[in-house]
Design a protein around this nucleic acid. Structure first.
Length: 213
DNA sequence: TGTGCGATCCACT
DNA sequence: GTGGATCGCACAC
């Protein structure tokens, strides 16, 4: 597989998160760990927008989500459920808090290292087919929060060798959220084994803001 | 300072 | 398909 070494221009991340989420499919995430380079192809994303109740920035700026309010192109990594990290990319103009959640990548390089970071005995396609899983496989934690994904040599993105044709991109509602479920802001590469399993493309029925237990 | 919940994962049924 | 694990963060008091 051909891996492009072309980084994104800053202007790319000044676009709306829904555009960035779609256009970043097929791009590569590079993670340098102990001198070894781990590379994964982005195959699934979700957009979190201004005025979106499911977005962490919906309630305003806090120390945790401050990166989302900054210039696009920076990593926003947060810890959730007491045990998982999620890797986001801040998008849009400075002051406009939007982000793209990277939900799944396809391991391209450094697969052995990724295996060593994940539980033993799992299938290769289970290494990175979920937000928490890919953070574990790439050893991404809050230490990697607020990194410039354009300039950094430790964690950065490069463009897809070829753009993904529009008819190869699937769209659905987002996964794992309990509010603003109607927005079709999840994007993925169709028929890619590394896409996380999810719900169908159309919500079965509108669900009122559901509270767990 | 205390309390409740969450953009998940995985073992178990 | 279901439920438990587990802790940082936001928000109420």
């Amino acid at each position: 597989m051909k891996i492009s070494s072309k980084r994104f221009p800053h202007a790319f991340f000044r676009q709306s998160s829904t555009i960035v989420a779609k256009d970043i499919l097929g791009a590569y995430v590079h993670r340098v760990l102990d001198g070894k380079e781990l590379i994964g192809k982005i195959v699934e994303t979700e957009a979190y927008c201004v005025g979106d109740e499911a977005c962490h920035a919906y309630r305003g700026k806090t120390p945790r989500n401050a990166v989302m309010f900054g210039e696009g192109g920076f990593s926003y990594i947060y810890f959730t459920y007491g045990m998982h990290h999620c890797f986001n990319i801040a998008a849009n103009e400075e002051g406009v808090a939007e982000a793209v959640l990277v939900r799944a990548i396809e391991p391209v390089k450094g697969v052995e290292t990724m295996r060593s970071l994940r539980p033993k005995g799992i299938l290769d396609r289970e290494l990175t087919n979920g937000p928490g899983k890919l953070c574990q496989a790439l050893s991404l934690t809050r230490n990697e929060n607020a990194i410039d994904l354009i300039e950094s040599d430790m964690l950065f993105l490069t463009q897809a060798a070829k753009p993904i044709p529009a008819n190869h991109i699937g769209v659905s509602t987002r996964i794992g959220i309990h509010v603003a479920q109607e927005h079709p802001w999840r994007f993925f590469i169709k028929e890619n084994d590394y896409v996380s399993r999810g719900k169908p493309s159309v919500p079965s029925k509108p669900v009122a803001a559901r509270r767990r237990k």
